[in-house]
Design a protein around this nucleic acid. Structure first.
Lengths: 230, 230
DNA sequence: GTCTATATATCGATAGAC
DNA sequence: GTCTATCGATATATAGAC
């Protein structure tokens, strides 16, 4: 900080990242221009390319700075549950709570920006942009490996593909839970917005109910046959 | 068809809609240009504005042409279940199967383009574009009213907000189910892509398990308190 | 590290000939 | 109804002064 000519210095990067995170969440990647970002961050238009190199690199950094911490905390929660089990197999509900509890903790952080980020993250799993998906998959590789391994051990009699799909379904439910009423308001005005603290127990009950549901029959009936049966 | 100068006539509209639906699904609305659409549809660039008026109007028509039929079929499935119940209250599982069964039927239609559309639709619930969300909410109003009313009657002892949230979670799980492995491949190469017919029973088991899950406690504990309890 | 000015490309939309 | 040509706005990115 002893040089000349850097009126805002290290704050500039963080201000750009905060503005980008917020605008990406509200408008999407493509609809958010560099001018919108630098305008909201109150920095010069050229600052984004100076600090990050390109818009795509900025997108990556918006995810990386939060995801590193989020996944570290998810792994820490899993390891804490494993230590508490003292070598015994983990209950599936403990594994689910480790993963989704940490996620909902971050989603509840409205001041620090975690809530904004989790809305963005939930949407980005189905984001069409190929390079964003590729980047996310790499960031998640270790966490998915660890949690899937734990669930395989906890549910040795359940086919692994069933576990994979159910975890995938749980991610979808969480994504919509976090998007909540900010997403499409199909259920207009009927949500209990006044008590967001209830969201976590609501979602967790639903997820565990889905995870523990009876396995579907092995026969792959088509839909109309299934609906007309018994 | 007795005029001059319309070499492709009524096919042009449909070809534009098909191309737009496919490209919107693959790249998103903003990243899909008119030139990409008219190029893939093999029509002139000016044809989109001639037939639809604007890009936004084209987006609306892409949804409208499929959603009208989809929601009509959903309502028909609900009415059929109600007739079969002969005045007795409907089982919640029948209601869920009416809504999501029809959805999965359309998602299984790969030749007619229904599968492409359902991927697009699932993503669009959380789409940031305001006018698209508004349009979707209007298209869904009647269906949501009818299905929510049926669920309220079927589950008179469950708080209505709980039902709303659980239906919302189910929509999220379905969205990810349909996006499937085309979305983010967190679970690399492990899905049983060879048997997509199993998806419907897989998802339906999960949804019903979640819907029937024990209700969360009324106390709104925060996450860490809940995880440390008992 | 910040800023202005600008290069270059692509966007949605439309006027007007056929 | 189709087509060419183009307008005007806006995008990302960068060169070069300070």
């Amino acid at each position: 900080m002893s040089e000349t000519n850097h009126k805002q210095g290290p704050e500039t990067r963080a201000r750009i990242l905060d503005a980008a995170e917020s605008l990406f969440t509200t408008h999407g990647f493509e609809a958010t221009s560099m001018r919108m970002i630098t305008g909201q961050a109150n920095v010069n238009l050229a600052a984004v390319n100076y600090h990050f190199g390109s818009k795509d690199a900025l997108i990556q950094e918006v995810f990386r700075r939060r995801l590193t911490d989020l996944n570290r905390r998810r792994l820490a929660a899993l390891e804490m549950a494993e230590r508490a089990a003292e070598g015994k197999p983990l209950k599936p509900s403990r594994i689910v709570e480790a993963f989704f509890g940490v996620s909902l903790d971050m989603a509840a952080d409205t001041e620090g920006g975690g809530a904004t980020f989790m809305r963005l993250l939930g949407r980005t799993y189905t984001e069409p942009n190929a390079f964003v998906r590729q980047f996310l998959a790499e960031e998640y590789a270790e966490v998915v490996d660890r949690f899937m391994g734990a669930l395989y051990d906890a549910l040795p009699d359940v086919p692994r593909e069933e576990i994979l799909w159910r975890f995938h379904f749980m991610m979808g439910a969480m994504s919509y839970a976090i998007a909540g009423t900010d997403a499409l308001r199909l259920f207009t005005g009927d949500f209990d917005d006044k008590d967001p603290a209830r969201l976590a127990p609501r979602l967790m009950s639903f997820l565990l109910g889905g995870l523990r549901a009876p396995l579907p029959g092995l026969q792959a009936m088509d839909d109309s046959a299934r609906r007309n049966a018994a």
